[in-house]
Design a protein around this nucleic acid. Structure first.
Length: 252
DNA sequence: GCGACAG
DNA sequence: ATCTTGTCGC
């Protein structure tokens, strides 16, 4: 797949101010509403849309970015890229650390995904421009952010012990540029123990680009298969680890 | 100044 | 994210 908006590609050598300014431009170009051709009801189904998962593993000063493209439960294509990391992890600026490696893994992908799931936030971000939003806008592809922890925003209610399949809106607050009370994402309980006192934490799902918050939560649940993480993300996670070990053994 | 903070 | 075996609980 190709980069459609190169002017939005993250530049890790930019100043913090320039990075934040670019994020504001990315957020302004982002569409937090359903704007795609495929039938969302067919996500995860045999003849449904191509859904890709992206995740990273790390090797000292390098990132291994892996992508797995699926149609139904079939893996159609896989790809990965190894890139030197240029900056440390800074909350709110994740796309400048991992965006380059991810772009390398995504560009050149033979199949153009109908939807891409990223490990991190989308609109749940101080400037509404998390990793999923940044990448989604650069490639102009429908994108969803799937995070294991909440970066900012406020859950509408308590999210402890939600039942499997349940969701709770995440509202914009003073830390987010969106208007207070705006639904910027959802806590999504993709998996839960049926009984007992142990509880699984929800995923924090938010629209990246060309997807509404509701649809973002829907597709995550539609692609979840017995594990907490949606299948495309889970497979990309495993593939990133596999690629990492491969690179390690190749260099020893 | 203190606290909060995706991966 | 990552360093890491067994272990307790689903």
């Amino acid at each position: 797949m190709d980069v459609v908006r190169p002017e939005f590609l993250p530049d890790a050598s930019a100043s913090r101010e320039a990075m934040e300014a670019l994020q504001r431009d990315v957020a302004a170009a982002a569409v937090f509403a359903d704007e795609f051709e495929f039938d969302p009801a067919r996500v995860g189904r045999p003849e449904g849309p191509l859904v890709a998962g992206v995740d990273q593993a790390f090797l000292d000063d390098r990132a291994v970015s892996a992508v797995v493209v699926r149609r139904g439960d079939e893996v159609v294509e896989r790809a990965y890229a190894v890139t030197p990391l240029e900056i440390p992890y800074i909350p709110g600026l994740l796309s400048f650390r991992e965006g380059g490696p991810i772009v390398d893994a995504l560009r050149g992908l033979e199949h153009v995904p109908d939807l891409v799931l990223f490990d991190g936030s989308g609109r749940i971000h101080y400037r509404e421009a998390g990793l999923a939003t940044h990448m989604g806008v650069a490639f102009d592809v429908p994108a969803v952010g799937v995070a294991k922890n909440l970066l900012c925003g406020t859950p509408e209610r308590d999210v402890d012990d939600l039942a499997e399949g349940e969701r709770v809106p995440v509202l914009a607050d003073g830390d987010v540029t969106a208007a207070d009370g705006e639904v910027i994402g959802y806590a999504v309980q993709s998996r839960q123990y049926d009984s007992g006192r142990q509880s699984i934490n929800p995923l924090w799902v938010s629209p990246g680009h060309r997807v509404s918050a509701t649809t973002a939560a829907d597709v995550v649940l539609a692609t979840t298969a017995g594990y907490k993480l949606p299948e495309p993300t889970r497979l990309a996670d495993a593939y990133a680890d596999e690629a990492k070990r491969e690179v390690e053994s190749r260099e020893e």
